[in-house]
Each structure stands twice: as C-alpha cells, then as structure tokens.
Amino acid sequence: MTPFLNIAREGAVMTVTMDRPQDRNAITEPEQSAEFVALADMLARDRTVRAVVLTGAGKSFCAGGNVKSMREKTGLFAGSPFDQRNHYRTTVQTIGRAMWELEVPVIAAINGHAIGLGFDISLMCDIRIMAEGAVVAESYVKLGIIPGGGGAWLLPRVVGTARASQMTLTGDAVDAATALEYGIVSEVLAAENLLPRAQGIAAAIAANPGHATRMAKRLMREGMDQKLPTHLEVAAAYQALSHHTADHAEAIDAFLDKRAPAFRDR
C-alpha cells in the first residue's frame, strides 16, 4: 500500500497531503490512522519543523469514513460491536489524541469536502482556511451514527454550543461563507490561492522561535480546561524556560540591532 500521507518540506515548513483522491481521501484502513500517529511522533522529535500545512489531494480535503466499507462491514467497520469499539479506539481515535498532543502549529487548508471525520481532523488543527467552493459537515447522524473521533468535543469549543448542536444534530453541510461567519475558518480564498496562503501563514509562524510557538500552542490547548490561577502558574514556568533559550537572546539582539534574527531551535 502506498502511503496515505504525502509529505513535502521546504525549510521549517512541512506540507502534508492526504493522498487518496480516488476515494476522496476517506479514512478506512488502520494504516491510515497509524500514519497520522507516526507523523505526530516524528514532529515531536524534530524541533526543526516549526509549522505544518495539512490538505487533501484532488477535490476533497477528507470525506471521513468510507461509506461503502460501512455497508460491506469491512475495515474499521467489521466484526461485533465490541470489535468495532476497539477499532475506533485503536485507529481513528488515535488521530485525535496524536493531533491534540502535537505542539507544532498546524494549518488546515480545506480545499474541498471535509465531512465527518475529515471535518473533525480539520478541527484538530490550530488554524483553518478554506477554498470558496469547499464545504464542511458534522454529518454523522445522516448515516445513523454519532461523532466517533472527537468532533462532539471539538466543535462546541470552536463555534459554541448552539451552532455545534445545529451542525451535529442536522448533519447539514456548511459552505465556506457560513464557515467564515461561524468562526470555523479564519479566511476564505479562491481555490488556486488556498495552498500558497496556507504555506505563507506557516512560513510566518516558522519565522518565530520554535520553542515559543510550541509552548504558546500548548498554553492555549491546556488553558481550555484550566482555571486562570492554574493557567498562570503554567505560563510562568513556560516563560521562565523561554527566557533561558538561545533563540530568545537572539531575538532580543536582533530587535535591538535592527536586523533579521537567525534562530537555531535552541
């Protein structure tokens, strides 16, 4: 089987493309989930990658689960209810855990349909931008199932309870203009401008010290479930670590010397 994730790198920016256009980049096989986990593990070790762009090949970002496999009870959808519960826990749910723990900033370039699990994967990213003709949908109920990969936890945190409930309980698709209004995405662009813009945002992130962007992301993620006093204690510890990095010293010198900094991820 050829890799599901096509990985390219330019400097400190990595572009990851879900690459099954013939299947609308649907996720059905355990190996596909394992690739996301392996990618997150690699990024946790490689501090020279400072930003990631995630997109899809062809006309879709990711169509979620393969409906034909659901009907045929194959792949993730095979076996007893207990088998299927274990399949979810050991495959698609590992994507959510890995992406949530990932400290490298990730920009989702939603080039086409992001449906079900595909939409949930975009919600796991830090920044989402969208092509004008793309749509997103938390569409599980239309197939008689529920959000199994983390969407019921993620979506209310992005759009609020009322809009998350409407999207989840109707399963209806949301177009790009509505996604922008809801705050699902920060920008809507012509299709041909989407990937260059995502890579431009990634480059702007990557221009900063990697330790600072990774810890700032961690602060925001942990802060979602913390009380303010706890959050401030963690922030103080992270700030103290930051002040003792070589890249912080380089940033200060470059600012005062009125020159471009040269960060070395240390």
Rank of each mutant, 00 (worst) to 15 (best):
L155I: 01
T178R: 08
H243M: 09
M220V: 05
T74D: 08
G160R: 02
E10M: 03
M42R: 14
D46G: 00
S139A: 02
D83S: 08
A134N: 07
V135D: 01
G11V: 00
P229R: 01
M14I: 00
G64Y: 07
V234N: 09
S122P: 08
G150R: 08
E138L: 10
G150F: 07
D120I: 07
V16A: 03
A131S: 05
A38H: 12
T230S: 04
A176L: 10
G65T: 10
M18Q: 05
E103C: 07
A236N: 14
M224Q: 10
G160F: 02
G148Q: 11
T94P: 15
I184P: 00
E31D: 15
D253N: 13
S165A: 07
A260F: 13
P147T: 04
G183M: 03
E233P: 14
I252A: 07
Q199G: 00
F263P: 02
A262R: 12
K59R: 06
A26I: 04
I27D: 09
L169H: 12
K227G: 14
V159E: 00
P21M: 01
T2G: 11
D257T: 08
G118T: 12
Y140Q: 02
N193R: 15
S139Y: 09
M215S: 08
I129Y: 11
D175S: 06
G112R: 01
T15K: 09
V174Y: 04
C62L: 03
D257G: 10
R266K: 06
L76C: 12
P261G: 01
R259L: 06
M42V: 06
G183L: 03
S139V: 01
E132S: 07
L180Y: 11
L195G: 01
G200L: 05
A262V: 10
T74E: 13
L54I: 01
P229G: 03
I205E: 00
G183R: 06
N193D: 11
Q93E: 15
A114Y: 13
A176Y: 14
N86C: 04
Y140P: 11
V37W: 15
I127G: 02
T161K: 05
P30Q: 14
P261H: 01
I7M: 07
E181S: 10
T2S: 13
D225H: 14
M14C: 03
